[in-house]
């Protein structure tokens, strides 16, 4: 169990889920990949609170799934109960992704750079890697296809938020500026939610910019935990808005009563 945040009556996983959920609305049409408990919780929470029309394809397969609780994998039938359709990868999913019928997705990354590009391929050199990671999977594809992509990290550190990726598995804002547009790619990275703060992207340079600090977190901590220079918003940095009692109740009781989301945190016991 994560520690309760002083002055917020909630834990960091709950704050991250609620922050993400508030980004979504009735026009959100989302799906999820592996080890994606935080965004899965956020889609379900949004649907159960302010966005009843939100579309969520569990595991990218099970449309409108409404599981009573989450299972230990976000890429398995353990979260498909209540679905109106089990869709097919080749025909349905990839057509809907490229046609932007789906518009929302969320990535984690072993490394993330200032433009929201991500690495999940190797640490070290490609040919002689220090760590051979699982591979990008659909990162390279979906980064080019889906307009609204969110990033999240439960372990904000200089190892993850790096100046230079060892490998670009998925494109965010690319080299910054109008790089995405030049490549003919839709949308871009929207927001990055971590265990320390929320960051958005500067509208012109497309570099990561602090949007709010979580309660009790100071700017210095974010700076020390980030391998590149984080842009600051104009004026005072706001504190991340905390969840309402109702949001917390629904998350705890209806969305994820068995707290599977804690599996994304290092101290969680699996």
């Amino acid at each position: 169990m994560n520690m309760v945040i002083a002055g917020a009556d909630c834990t960091i996983d709950e704050l991250m889920v609620v922050t993400l959920a508030r980004q979504f609305d009735n026009s959100t049409r989302a799906f999820n990949g592996a080890v994606s408990f935080i965004p899965v919780c956020a889609y379900l929470l949004a649907r159960k609170t302010h966005a009843p029309e939100l579309v969520w394809a569990a595991s990218s397969i099970a449309i409108d799934a409404d599981p009573a609780c989450l299972g230990e994998s976000t890429l398995s039938d353990s979260i498909w109960d209540g679905a109106v359709m089990l869709s097919n990868s080749p025909f349905d999913f990839w057509a809907w992704a490229q046609g932007m019928r789906y518009n929302t997705f969320a990535f984690r990354g072993a490394q993330i750079d200032r433009y929201g590009n991500v690495n999940n391929t190797v640490i070290g050199s490609y040919d002689e890697p220090k760590v051979r990671l699982p591979g990008g999977g659909g990162m390279a594809d979906l980064g080019c296809m889906i307009p609204d992509i969110y990033l999240w990290s439960t372990t904000h550190s200089p190892k993850i938020f790096v100046e230079q990726l060892d490998f670009r598995s998925g494109i965010g804002w690319g080299d910054g500026g109008d790089h995405r547009e030049k490549l003919g790619l839709p949308g871009g990275r929207k927001l990055c939610v971590t265990n320390l703060c929320v960051m958005d992207f500067h509208p012109e340079s497309r570099a990561m910019r602090l949007k709010s600090l979580h309660p009790g977190i100071i700017l210095e901590t974010v700076r020390e935990s980030t391998g590149f220079e984080v842009l600051l918003p104009e004026g005072e940095v706001p504190v991340t808005e905390t969840p309402t009692e109702e949001e917390l109740r629904i998350l705890r009781e209806e969305v994820d009563p068995t707290s599977m989301r804690l599996r994304e945190f290092p101290q969680a016991e699996n």
Binding site: T121, A140, C144, R168, L185
Partner: peptide, 10 residues
Amino acid sequence: TKAGLGTDVI
């Protein structure tokens, strides 16, 4: 396809 544009995968 447009998949993979702008990444090291290409």
